[in-house]
Design a protein around this nucleic acid. Structure first.
Lengths: 222, 222
DNA sequence: AGGTTATTTTTTGTAAAAAATTTAAAATGG
DNA sequence: CCATTTTAAATTTTTTACAAAAAATAACCT
């Protein structure tokens, strides 16, 4: 462990601990199925058990950890199959959200979408693209749509899907494709074409899944 | 408060506290937006803060409560609109799960489905039907299908949708309709007819939503 | 070896201190 | 004098440190 992060800007130690753990998981620092001991983590972070415990519960809620009563917490075993599964589910819920959004989206949300899209395009066309920023903009873009769908529950589910994958998979889709898809999405939403919005979103995600599968396969051969 | 429940059969106090709170919410004992004080709840239950706190986190994760850092926890304001929303979302995810299940379900799962269905039919045709048992059987039936869909994430989402409604709404659908729908579902799954399974499931849920809307409307007039 | 009883380790729960927020009261300035 | 800001008090949440309970591990004894 031994994070040297400044540790401020977090409102609670639980939140900070959760963020540290989430990052550690994303970086694959723990093996699948590995047992995490709250007492140990607390010692590493210099906190007492309670905030660490709460952080563990949060991540367990996200499906990143599994916690058995009196028996401790283990890193969830998310196989490659499950990663593909994530995309299957995302295609289902996010395309449905896009369809709903087409019916309900308001002009100011369209404007917001355009603004973020423009920033994305600018950032993507830079000489040395800032991947972290692109990821943020991409997320913002998507969630403007999901908020516009007007279903808090569906939005929450999509958030679950986005956080349920420990490994960061942004960037499998070529920037150009992402850009074009986002443009098509805006157009479909603006013309209130629910069918098209749904289709574009589904293909946008399935394309990512396909590329990810290829990527995984090529890595497995090695 | 002052639950007189024996309190056993729970592995941890957190779990017990969560169960008590969940029931209290289901019974509408707290107003929407009302503030819940952990210290107060702890006193009422005779527990210390930690288990109560953990219970609150669980329910917040289910969307039943909203918790703001350093500012306490409030009962989520789930309006009637949101209840309808629940059904919209359920129709989306559960019909998708039914389609997936049709492609992957195994013979023993079909057999299991038939077994539960038979129990449901028996219980439903009793002189004085046991509603609690029917609810359990209904849930079991549905989740056999969602498990058969082979997507842990989708299954988890559906579980979220089922627990995200504080008020219990089982029973709006006439027993006869439920029975017929379940029969049609088994048939569609057995013949691997994904389209049909999806349609039946969607209509099964949308029918509930429609009746619930009528029910709500009639109650509002009064 | 097999099984039972200690020992140790880890999780869970308690009580109270610390930090933050809200509420109330006092002070300040127009 | 009233409104606004400051200061202080009281709640409430968050964290700590430690005790109790449960499970895992080691030791022991036929």
């Amino acid at each position: 462990m031994a994070e040297k992060e400044p540790a401020p800007r977090f409102q609670t130690k639980s939140a900070y601990a959760a963020s540290v753990l989430r990052r550690a998981l994303a970086e694959g620092r723990y093996a699948a199925g590995e047992r995490l001991m709250a007492t140990q983590l607390a010692r590493d972070l210099g906190f007492s058990m309670t905030p660490v415990r709460e952080a563990l519960m949060q991540l367990a809620n996200d499906g990143l950890l599994e916690i058995a009563p009196h028996r401790g917490v283990r890193v969830a075993d998310i196989a490659d199959d499950d990663l593909v599964d994530t995309y299957v589910v995302r295609a289902i819920v996010e395309s449905a959200a896009a369809r709903l959004a087409a019916a309900r989206i308001r002009p100011e949300e369209i404007a917001q979408l355009r603004r973020v899209h423009r920033q994305f395009v600018d950032a993507a066309s830079a000489r040395d693209p800032d991947v972290a920023r692109l990821r943020e903009l991409n997320e913002e873009f998507h969630f403007i749509i999901y908020a516009a769908a007007g279903s808090p529950l569906l939005r929450r589910m999509i958030r679950t899907a986005w956080t349920s994958s420990p490994r960061d998979t942004f960037g499998v889709l070529p920037l150009k494709t992402a850009r074009d898809d986002h443009g098509a999405l805006i157009e479909a939403l603006e013309t209130r074409d629910g069918d098209r919005a749904e289709d574009v979103m589904r293909e946008h995600i399935e394309e990512s899944a396909k590329l990810l599968r290829l990527f995984k396969k090529s890595k497995r051969k090695h």
